[in-house]
Simulated assay, not measured.
Amino acid sequence: MVTKLQGAIIAAGRGERLRVSTRDDLPKPLVKLGGEAMLSRQARALLAAGATSVVAVINSETARVGKEISLQTPPALRLVVRDTANSMETMLALGDLLEPGWFIASTVDAVIPQIELVRFVNESREKIEACREKNLAGVLAVTRWRGEDKPLFADVTENGLILGLGNRQTSLVTAGLYFLSTRVFDFAADARRAGLDALRRFLALLIERGMRLDSIEIDGSIDVDEASDLDAARRAIRKMP
């Protein structure tokens, strides 16, 4: 039973591809979408989707620049500064920050229509409460692959069970949105012993270790990696209700 839903944002990367393509030296979490920093916008979206509070892991540069520009954030957002080595370590840092239970996590650059975000949360709750398997680790949002570079492909059954995650091309890719149990942090030591260096590899490890990950397909998500993605996200936001 999902009683309390915590929110989390993975935002400790530097966003080099976006900086190079936009020639903007702002850390990615502080780049504006719809007149609001991506970090603040994502926190507000998670809160509106049902999270009771949100913690964001950011790096020291984002913290410094955010203070310089007087970044405005929702009161329910807690910023934690960690200069992590990679996206997996950013995710694992949440293990020290969240209470045992369930949480909804997103990457800071996953732009998702609010109606789809709310649907994902509601349907994830339903899946979790209907599942009797003790090895359930959570639910991942997936979307149709549109030719983006370096996607994480998902091999999914008709009922949404994820059989595998990796580079083998399928029609679905992960969308940077996760509804997970804090039990995933039990595998932190395994992941580090294996020398894993990315969140995608950690998620694949969960499946390899016998944990169940389900999926829900969402529509309209944009992963903001380059200037063209940022332009597309800004256009999409202007059309959102």
Rank of each mutant, 00 (worst) to 15 (best):
T3E: 14
K4S: 11
Q6Y: 08
A8F: 13
I9W: 02
G13L: 01
R14I: 02
R19M: 15
V20L: 13
D24H: 13
K28W: 06
P29F: 07
L33N: 04
G34C: 02
G35L: 10
L39I: 14
R44T: 12
R44Y: 03
L46I: 08
G50M: 10
A51V: 08
V54T: 07
S60D: 03
S60H: 04
S70K: 13
P74T: 08
P75T: 11
L77N: 02
L79N: 00
V80C: 08
E89M: 07
E89I: 02
T90P: 00
M91H: 11
M91R: 11
A93H: 03
G95C: 07
G101T: 01
T107V: 14
V108N: 11
D109Y: 14
I112V: 15
E116N: 08
V118C: 07
F120T: 12
V121T: 14
N122S: 14
R125C: 13
E126T: 15
R132P: 01
E133R: 15
N135F: 01
A141F: 10
T143L: 00
T143A: 07
D149Q: 10
N159D: 15
L163C: 09
L165W: 09
G166I: 07
G166M: 01
N167H: 11
N167W: 10
R168P: 01
L172K: 13
L172D: 06
Y178G: 00
F179C: 04
T182L: 07
R183Q: 11
F185A: 03
A194Y: 00
A198S: 14
R201H: 13
F202R: 03
A204G: 10
I207R: 03
E208V: 12
R209H: 08
S215H: 09
S221E: 15
S221F: 03
V224A: 07
L230N: 09
R234M: 12
R235V: 09
A236Q: 14
A236N: 04
A236W: 01
K239H: 11
M240W: 15
P241W: 04
P241I: 04
